[in-house]
Amino acid sequence: MAIEIPKEARKEAIASIERYFRENMEEPIGNIAAGGLLSFFLEEIGPLVYNRAVAEAQERLQARVMELDIELHEDEFQYWRKFERQRKPG
């Protein structure tokens, strides 16, 4: 699965890459080269980040699902017990 980013985000990412090169490298990078570098990172490293994010989301969802029985548990057969508690002198 190819990782794609919205057009506006791509423009911002390219501008950020250009700025990074201006401020941190000896040679600046042009718009086309920055776009190529971004495409390379998205294709080469993007899946690693994506897969890790999916795995973390799965872990969190599984933890929440395991808590459902605690959060949503209802005791069964409580109708008569409710009346027995009301009858006890207290």
Rank of each mutant, 00 (worst) to 15 (best):
M1S: 13
A2Y: 05
A2G: 06
A2D: 15
I3D: 03
I5T: 03
I5Q: 02
I5E: 04
P6I: 13
P6C: 11
K7Q: 10
K7L: 10
E8V: 15
A9F: 13
R10H: 08
R10I: 04
K11G: 03
E12F: 14
A13V: 07
I14F: 04
S16Q: 06
S16N: 04
E18G: 03
R19Y: 15
R19G: 04
Y20A: 04
Y20D: 06
Y20N: 03
F21G: 02
F21K: 01
R22H: 06
E23K: 02
N24Q: 14
N24D: 08
E26N: 10
E27Q: 10
E27M: 11
P28C: 01
I29T: 14
I29W: 00
I29D: 00
I29Y: 00
I32C: 00
I32R: 14
I32T: 12
A33D: 07
A33Y: 05
A34Y: 04
A34G: 01
G35Y: 10
L38H: 01
F40Q: 03
L42C: 05
E43F: 06
E43K: 12
I45Q: 11
G46I: 05
P47W: 15
P47V: 12
P47E: 10
L48R: 15
V49I: 15
V49K: 00
Y50W: 13
R52W: 11
R52P: 01
R52D: 10
A53S: 11
A53P: 04
A53C: 08
A55N: 06
A55Y: 11
A57V: 15
Q58R: 08
R60S: 05
R60L: 09
R60A: 09
L61C: 09
Q62C: 05
Q62D: 15
Q62M: 07
Q62W: 09
Q62Y: 12
A63C: 01
R64M: 11
V65F: 03
V65W: 00
M66C: 05
E67V: 00
E67Y: 02
E67P: 01
L68W: 07
L68K: 05
L68A: 07
I70M: 10
I70P: 05
L72C: 02
L72S: 04
E74R: 13
D75Y: 13
D75I: 04
E76M: 12
E76F: 14
F77Y: 11
F77W: 09
Q78F: 05
Q78G: 04
Y79S: 06
R81W: 10
K82D: 11
K82G: 06
E84C: 03
R85K: 05
R85P: 01
R85E: 06
Q86G: 00
Q86L: 12
R87T: 09
R87I: 14
K88S: 05
K88V: 14
P89S: 00
P89Q: 00
P89I: 01
